[in-house]
C-alpha cells in the first residue's frame, strides 16, 4: 500500500467511525439556523448545509446575490452523471465534511459550519489548497470545480466578467 492509498483508506475509515449516523445526529443537534435546500438526488441535507456555507466563501467577490438553490441543483446534476467511483469518492468527502471529526480535525473549523467566520473558512480552504497531502489538494479542487462550475454555468454570472453569452441563432 503506498502512502496515498494509506491516507485514502484511513480517511475512509475515519469517515466510517466518526461520520455516518453519529456525525449526522451530532450536527443536527448543533445546527440551529434554517438554510435554503433543494430536493436533490446525490446531495443530502448535511452536504447541502456544508455547501451553503462554502459557496459564498468560494464565490466571494463574484456577486452580492448568489442563487444558492441553483448552485446546489447544478452541483447535484453534475455529480449524478459522474462515474460510480467518483461519486463514491465525493460521498466520502461530504461525509467527512459533515462529521464533527472531519470539521474539527481535518478542516480545522472549530465553530459549527454555520457560525464559522468567513476568515476561518478561508483559512481552511487555503490550507487544503496548499496542503502537502495530495488528498487534501484533491478535495479542495473537487469542491472548487463543483462550486465554481455551478455558478459560471448560469447566465446571471456572466455580465460581471464581461461575457455577453452566445449569440442567438435563427434556426
Amino acid at each position: 500500500m503506498n502512502r496515498r492509498d494509506f491516507i485514502k483508506s484511513s480517511l475512509g475509515g475515519i469517515t466510517l467511525l466518526f461520520g455516518g449516523v453519529a456525525g449526522y445526529q451530532l450536527y443536527l443537534e448543533s445546527q440551529e439556523r434554517p438554510f435554503e435546500k433543494t430536493k436533490a438526488i446525490f446531495l443530502t441535507e448535511a452536504d447541502q448545509l456544508v455547501l451553503s456555507v462554502l459557496i459564498p466563501v468560494i464565490l466571494n467577490g463574484a456577486t452580492d446575490k448568489i442563487d444558492l438553490i441553483k448552485c446546489l441543483e447544478n452541483i447535484d446534476g453534475a455529480i449524478i452523471r459522474l462515474p460510480q467511483k467518483t461519486q463514491q469518492e465525493l460521498r466520502q468527502l461530504f461525509d467527512l465534511l459533515g462529521s464533527v471529526f472531519g470539521r474539527l480535525v481535518i478542516a480545522g473549523v472549530w465553530q459549527n459550519w454555520q457560525t464559522a467566520t468567513s476568515n476561518s473558512l478561508n483559512e481552511f480552504l487555503e490550507s487544503w489548497r496548499n496542503s502537502s497531502l495530495d488528498l487534501l489538494q484533491q478535495a479542495y479542487l473537487g469542491l472548487h470545480k463543483l462550486i465554481i462550475g455551478s455558478f459560471y454555468s448560469e447566465q446571471s454570472s456572466w455580465a460581471a466578467i464581461g461575457y455577453p453569452g452566445p449569440l442567438s441563432i435563427q434556426k
Binding site: 466563501v57 466571494n60 467577490g61 463574484a62 480552504l125 489548497r129 479542487l141 462550475g149 466578467i161
Partner: peptide, 15 residues
Amino acid sequence: PVLASTLLKHHGESH
C-alpha cells in the same frame, strides 16, 4: 466562462 473559471484554481476575491 465555465472552462476558464474552473481552470483558475483560486477562490474568493483572488479568483
